[in-house]
């Protein structure tokens, strides 16, 4: 899984029917120090994250598992909203 921040939302009425009912969010990948790492991507939201919230998401075909359909063309899904992050400064600097 990866850490990210929800930075926007996408509306699409015409879509593959198995993904109807799920919000599609724009996510900026970040690291444990909340630094931006990489390009924003689109992820399906199964936990109801709001814009600006820190989340973590799962990628690849595992992204379909949280959905209640067994097949859907989804390669990123938000699976958790972060309450807090604790980083051991000594380890992190290695």
């Amino acid at each position: 899984m990866y850490l990210g921040q929800v930075i926007g939302t996408i509306w699409a009425t015409k879509k593959y029917e198995a993904v109807t009912g799920y919000k599609m969010q724009f996510v900026q990948p970040i690291n444990s120090l909340l630094e931006k790492t990489g390009e924003p991507l689109i992820a399906l939201d199964t936990v109801g994250a709001g814009a600006g919230e820190i989340i973590f998401y799962v990628t690849a075909s595992e992204a379909v598992i949280p959905l209640d359909v067994d097949m859907a063309p989804v390669d990123a899904t938000i699976v958790g909203i972060v309450d807090s992050i604790n980083v051991d400064r000594k380890q992190e600097a290695v």
Binding site: Q5, V6, I7, G8, T9, I10, W11, A12, T13, K14, K15, Y16, V19, M24, F26, Q28, A51, G52, A72, P73, V74
Partner: peptide, 13 residues
């Protein structure tokens, strides 16, 4: 898998 109607970026870069 979808055609975009609207895109709303609320957290500005």
């Amino acid at each position: 898998m979808a055609i975009v109607d609207k895109l709303d970026i609320s957290v500005k870069d």
